[in-house]
């Protein structure tokens, strides 16, 4: 666990934690203000579905922003996991100790994934807490949503770590962010394909979500974040933009788990074979 502590200290001293906390507090204040104002206006509507829709929309989009921040945090941390340590020579002193490369990599990438997942948990609780406090909001399944979001950052950390064994921090970061963007476009294509009833478009979107499952995991999480009343009353055509309208299949979740594990094992294999 020494490398975990060392990595946490590094994150703390690189101001990642401080900057993340400051921005998050600012974001939560803004969300609280926006939610309070928005919900008060919606609450005057006679149709109870209107206020449920307003609360769901604001909660889901708030967590969409959280997901976005957590993903970037995961990518930025993981894409510099290995290469800069080798280039600077910091790694050599540590690996000259009785510590296997696999253990070092597991502790380091595990710490990054843990930090990003912790951020997800704290922010999700805060957002859902604000929504619940103001509007009495209850999501379909906050636990499943948070688990899927944590899996999303794990996927990004595993991918970023693997690339950081082979590429510089900047190159690895650019590749992962580009893939993350591709997943986002793929998600929009899938939704657009469903709305417009174009199978080809939908199939491309599904294929992209298999190549990089980050956005599909978000869409799965976003379904569980909706209020049950709202989810029952809407379909994909009139759903929230960028959000999913159905629970993810067990097969897809299994694929995403295998995806993260696969990239991590590849990272380990590449790292063990590499000359330092």
């Amino acid at each position: 666990m020494i490398v975990v502590r060392l990595t946490l200290r590094e994150a703390a001293n690189r101001k990642v934690l401080l900057v993340g906390a400051v921005i998050s507090v600012a974001f939560l204040l803004l969300f609280w203000l926006g939610f309070a104002v928005g919900f008060n206006e919606a609450a005057t509507e006679p149709d109870p579905l209107e206020s449920a829709a307003a609360a769901t929309l604001m909660t889901v989009l708030g967590l969409y922003a959280v997901q976005f921040l957590a993903s970037f945090m995961a990518v930025l941390l993981a894409s510099g996991a290995v290469a800069p340590e080798i280039e600077s020579g910091r790694l050599h002193a540590v690996l000259a100790r009785p510590l296997s490369r696999t253990s070092w990599l597991a502790q380091r990438s595990g710490t990054f994934a843990g930090l990003a997942a912790m951020y997800i948990v704290v922010m999700s609780l805060a957002i859902l807490g604000i929504a619940s406090g103001i509007a009495g909001y209850g999501a379909i399944s906050p636990g499943r949503a948070v688990a899927l979001l944590a899996l999303e950052v794990a996927v990004l950390v595993a991918l970023g770590t693997a690339l950081s064994v082979r590429l510089s921090a900047i190159a690895a970061g650019v590749v992962v962010i580009a893939l993350y963007g591709a997943a986002w476009i793929g998600g929009i294509m899938e939704i657009a394909g469903a709305v417009l009833d174009k199978d080809g478009l939908e199939r491309i979107g599904v294929a992209v979500s298999l190549v990089i499952p980050s956005d599909a995991l978000w869409r799965g999480a976003s379904y569980y974040l909706q209020s049950p009343v709202y989810a029952a009353a809407t379909s994909v055509e009139d759903g929230i933009p960028f959000a999913g309208s159905a629970a993810p299949s067990g097969l897809f979740v299994a694929w995403a788990l295998a995806y993260a594990a696969g990239w991590w094992m590849l990272a380990d294999r590449w790292f063990r074979r590499r000359d330092l």
Binding site: L6, R9, E10, A12, N13, R14, G89, R90, H92, A93
Partner: peptide, 8 residues
């Protein structure tokens, strides 16, 4: 090529 964590 030695370098030790600057923050420690």
């Amino acid at each position: 090529q030695f370098q030790y964590p600057a923050w420690l």
